[in-house]
Every structure is written in structure tokens, then in C-alpha cells.
């Protein structure tokens, strides 16, 4: 009888413990693109690396969540979130009014401006829509940059690519005259052998309407609890210096 009581007690304790643990370790699936260095990309061993990934891991740690990553092509990254393939997008997604119709965003976790690049010695200095008439400009499709070009640069031929890499490749080969993209992403590319061909032209391109308030974490609108938890964790990593450490690992200046 004693043995039985002990057995029951042990079982009950185990169940309670594991229950408590699973309640604490929330499972969160995070979607990212994996083709946007230095923010998110794959290393040689097919591991996701980059600023977005490190931030995601830091946030997960603060939320005490068990996070798994899912790589998803950029074109379908919001539809896949809505289709419940994962719970949050941490992929340098700009917080725009257009996207806020479909998904909810946390506060920004970084904000970097967009810029144009062209081949060195292209002679392009003026980047106003009038002076770029007839030029071919590349951008990644479904990005803030592509919608900005389509809205503002009317007389310009716009070429859209599935990934930023492909847009860069076509600029290097001379199929396009310019590329509009995130300044940091372009800077990283210009450090490589392929990107050595090219340089920034013009100043930062700014438009709150198109580029939003910086990059945020996107989730389904009904997941208000997750949003609150992520905002809290984000504030914590900014406050306790974790963010700064990650920032320093990638960039010599603050991008917050």
C-alpha cells in the first residue's frame, strides 16, 4: 500500500512538473527568408544566420520560448504566416500601413534607410524620377522598395526579382542601371567581389508612407498575447545590452 502511494505521488509530481515546463516553454515557429545577408541567410552548413536570426534567438530566450525556424521565399512570406505555417516573421520586414492591413507588427527592432546603387562611373548622380526616366531599375519583388519604385518612379522600367541576390547580379552584369534596396544590405554586397563593381548614388531615400517605421516582427492579428510578449522581450534585450552586442557583431554603428 505504501509502495502504491509512493508510486502515485511520483507520477503526479512528474505530470505536474512536465505540465509546468510545457506551459513555460511555449513553442514558437519563426519564419524568415534566408536569402538576405547580413540579416538572414544560410551558412555553408545550411544553418540560418544573421542579425534577424540572432535577434529572434535573443527574444525567444527572454520569452522563455522554444523557437524553431522556417525558411520561406519572400513572395509568400505573409501568406504562409496567415496559413499558419509559422507564428511570427522575423525577416527584416518593414512596418508599413499596407502590410498592417493583413498582419500585426511589434515595435521596430531596427531601422535603416533605402538607397540606390549603380555601376561605378555610371555618371548617374541625380536620382529624381524625372532624371531617371528611361533607365532600368531593379528591386526585389513584394518589398517596400518595389512598391516605392512603382508609385514614384513612373517613367522608369522596373525589373523585379525573387531575391535581392538576383537583382544585384543583374546590376553587376549591366542589365539594369540601378538597384534600390536597403542601404545595409547593399553595403554588405558591395564588400564582396561581385559587388565591387558598384557604388551608392544619391542620398538616403526616405518615405514614411512606403518604407514605414523600420523593420518589425509580424504575426497574425489575433495573436495579441504573442505580440505583447515579443514587445516586452524586445524592450528587455534593448535595455540589458543584448541588442547592442548583436548590433556590434554585424555593424560598427547602431541601426536601432
Amino acid at each position: 500500500m505504501k509502495l502504491l502511494k509512493l508510486f502515485v505521488a511520483v507520477v503526479a509530481a512528474t505530470v505536474m512538473l512536465s505540465g509546468a515546463a510545457s506551459a513555460e516553454m511555449k513553442k514558437v515557429r519563426i519564419g524568415t527568408e534566408g536569402a538576405y545577408p547580413p540579416f538572414n541567410s544560410f551558412d555553408a552548413d545550411k544553418n540560418l544566420i544573421g542579425f534577424d536570426v540572432d535577434i529572434a534567438k535573443a527574444i525567444c530566450e527572454k520569452m522563455k520560448a522554444d523557437c524553431t525556424f522556417v525558411a520561406q521565399d519572400w513572395d509568400g512570406i505573409i501568406p504562409a504566416l496567415l496559413a499558419n505555417k509559422y507564428d511570427a516573421i522575423i525577416a527584416s520586414m518593414s512596418i508599413t500601413a499596407e502590410r498592417e492591413k493583413k498582419v500585426a507588427f511589434t515595435n521596430k527592432y531596427y531601422n535603416t534607410p533605402a538607397r540606390f546603387v549603380a555601376q561605378k562611373g555610371s555618371g548617374i548622380t541625380d536620382i529624381s524620377p524625372e532624371s531617371l526616366k528611361g533607365k532600368v531599375v531593379g528591386a526585389q519583388s513584394s518589398t517596400t522598395h518595389s512598391s516605392y519604385l512603382e508609385d514614384i518612379y513612373k517613367g522608369v522600367e522596373i525589373k523585379l526579382y525573387g531575391t535581392q541576390d538576383e537583382a544585384n547580379l543583374d546590376l553587376a552584369s549591366g542589365r539594369t542601371d540601378l538597384v534600390l534596396a536597403d542601404s545595409i544590405v547593399l553595403l554588405e554586397w558591395m564588400k564582396t567581389k561581385d559587388g565591387a563593381c558598384c557604388e551608392y548614388v544619391g542620398k538616403d531615400v526616405t518615405s514614411e508612407k512606403h518604407f514605414g517605421k523600420g523593420a518589425g516582427i509580424a504575426m497574425r492579428k489575433e495573436d495579441t498575447e504573442l505580440k505583447a510578449a515579443m514587445n516586452k522581450a524586445l524592450a528587455e534585450i534593448v535595455a540589458d545590452g543584448t541588442y547592442e552586442k548583436i548590433n556590434k557583431k554585424y555593424f560598427p554603428f547602431s541601426i536601432y
Binding site: D75, I78, P79, S141, S142, K159, L160, Y161, G162
Partner: peptide, 22 residues
């Protein structure tokens, strides 16, 4: 469509990426 030609599939993908309408 993958090499930037706006054929039927290219236009479809573009429309989908803006509208998210299946």
C-alpha cells in the same frame, strides 16, 4: 517569370504578392 519576364505567371505572382488573394 523567374528570370524577370512578365509572362502570365509573372503577372500572376505580382498580383498575388500585392493582394495576397489566392
Amino acid at each position: 517569370s523567374i528570370i524577370t519576364v512578365f509572362d502570365l505567371m509573372g503577372e500572376t505572382k505580382l498580383a498575388y504578392s500585392r493582394s495576397y488573394d489566392f
